[in-house]
Nucleic acid binder design. Structure first.
Lengths: 332, 332
DNA sequence: AGGACGGTTTACAACGTTTAACGTGGATGT
DNA sequence: ACATCCACGTTAAACGTTGTAAACCGTCCT
């Protein structure tokens, strides 16, 4: 059914090896031969068999992207960018949803899809990168996100401390005095962004109040809405909220709207990620906007370099450019 | 580096084939042998090589999902559901972004990833399904969306005519008299939903006005915002809008907010898809809510049936259950 | 005791590709 | 006339797995 290399060879009147040479851009081939072969390839609609090729070469030109959930806009947008960046280089991306479960993350790493995958871009949620050993995978790995790579892997992330500092300082500069934070946690994103948040408060001579620092079960709209309700129930509710991602912020905005409070007059809100929803919400959402295209492009480049062995032995740690996008939710 | 079947066989003291038999649940194996082999597999952390297996079997347990863009919430959510449904059956999903370009769609179909893919779930945008021949792929294909399958393929979609009829009728029942539509088009979704829209108007004894039927370049927020501005510029602006998807609706809501109009008092808005954003927007968005989990599950089942040859020669056409979710944007 | 039988295991080839090692005939340059 | 390079061809051997068919082994039957 499917046409093979030998079919092409027969039609072009050359050997199998020559066809293979043409396909793999072997340098010493006459234009005439190449033309014949290419004509045969086109006529027969030949497409190389990926399985056979990767079995033989040990390379597949497939990479994996492991993210918590593709239904979440930030990861969906990131996944789209990474797919695009990879396609530009002739690479196919396989997306794995880990649902933030340690087992699923481990499965992806262990399995590596049965040698099919050349490498992986991994956004860990449950697994601490420090616990990863390169022996776990045997294949190149690029880490995304706040958790430190421990010098074992390449990593690429926004400088969350600085970005959170910027976001909080922006609220301070608006004259806000009770600035809450939603999404605080002990590890990973929740810890790093809290650090920047507290640093900014301290720089402004303001104490950080435990009551104003709320953890979130997840980083979804629902969690943001719930946390915001808790904040509004306080004796002294905040006049500003820094949410550690946009979904939390959108949830918080929802609660504020339900409560009949005005944004930004009564409460100013800042998010993090700059997902498209925030740009169209009423009010539009002030947020930290990382350059996702840059991130995607560099993540893919980093990984491919390592796959090709072009990268040295030292592991790189890249910082994603970002901007504070001031919009309506802080009076932009 | 990677452990192979022969390594496991050596350690277990059996032949390679026996190990293969254990892995593939070949029935005639003594408990003792099976135990030995399984111990060896566990000890060596053996994972089958996907390339070799699929080269030999002609099956890979990979399916492709081709969608216009995964950054779009509806497709992101759908992709997430389909991934989940496939994983439950031990199948891996490979997602292809076609960006709505005919070339990219054709590439996915033609290529089928070089025989790696067992079948494809395809949401066409540029390619008319009628133009597809099964010879194009040689592999099973399940179509998603409004465009008719021409009896050549399995297809699964919401009954868009009926759903649009319901949505429009809901607006009529609120007493609205100038009901606009955004997203109208000559083919596919834009045509089918217009049909239901017009049918509802007719049933209510209302004429359809060309000025109130707006096309949209894409189905994104930006297009919705632009179209809404056009509608507001009319001598007699509408008092209700049916947007052919939620993104258009969210864009329209943005324009209405900018114009200082109240929703639903001045203008009522209905969307289509029930993406999560709409549930948290202010106001929350009334919309047609298809059962995405049902859709995903059945799409995967349909495809796997055909791959396994379990499906008959007649092609099935499934209708996705949906509900009209009445929320704030129509005064819910 | 010899043979048939059924369940269990194994040897071997094949899937389509690339790589390696060599070979060959022609064109080119001296 | 001879070495050199080029552009291919030939053949064989992998890559890791599974299908086919045949070999093995103990048991039961006659």
């Amino acid at each position: 059914m499917a046409t093979r290399l030998s079919d092409v060879a027969a039609r072009a009147g050359v050997s199998v090896k020559t066809v293979s040479n043409v396909i793999n851009d072997y340098p010493h081939i006459t234009a005439r031969t190449r033309a014949k072969v290419e004509a045969a390839i086109a006529a027969l609609n030949y497409i190389p068999n990926v399985s056979a090729r990767s079995l033989r070469k040990g390379r597949s030109d497939f990479i994996a992207l492991a993210i918590p959930e593709m239904g979440s806009p930030y990861f969906a947008e990131l996944g789209a960018e990474i797919s695009r960046a990879a396609k530009r280089r002739g690479i196919t991306v396989l997306i794995d949803q880990t649902e933030g479960e340690a087992a699923a993350e481990q499965f992806v790493l262990d399995g590596m899809r049965g040698q099919l995958i050349d490498g992986i871009i991994f956004s860990p949620l449950a697994t601490a990168p420090a616990k990863l050993t390169s022996a776990d995978t045997g294949k190149p790995l690029v880490l995304l996100g706040e958790r430190p790579a421990g010098g074992q892997f390449d990593r690429i992330a926004v400088d969350s401390v600085q970005a959170s500092y910027d976001a909080t300082t922006h609220l301070v500069s608006l004259g806000r005095r009770r600035i809450a934070a939603i999404g605080v946690g002990g590890t990973g994103t929740g810890a790093v962004r809290r650090k920047g948040y507290r640093k900014a408060l301290k720089a402004a001579g303001m104490p950080h109040e435990p009551a104003l620092e709320l953890a979130a079960a997840g980083y979804h709209r629902l969690d943001g809405a719930t946390s915001m309700r808790e904040l509004l129930a306080l004796p002294e509710p905040p006049d500003a909220v820094f949410c550690f991602n946009d979904l939390l912020a959108l949830g918080a905005l929802r609660t504020l709207a339900d409560a009949g409070l005005r944004v930004p007059e009564d409460v100013a809100v800042v998010g993090f990620d700059d997902i498209e929803d925030g740009r169209y919400h009423s009010p539009t959402l002030t947020t930290i906007s990382p350059d996702k295209e840059w991130l995607a492009d560099n993540a893919v480049t980093l990984l491919l370099d390592r796959i090709a062995g072009r990268a040295g032995s030292t592991h790189r740690d890249l910082s994603v450019p970002y901007r504070l996008e001031i919009r309506e939710s802080t009076g932009g």
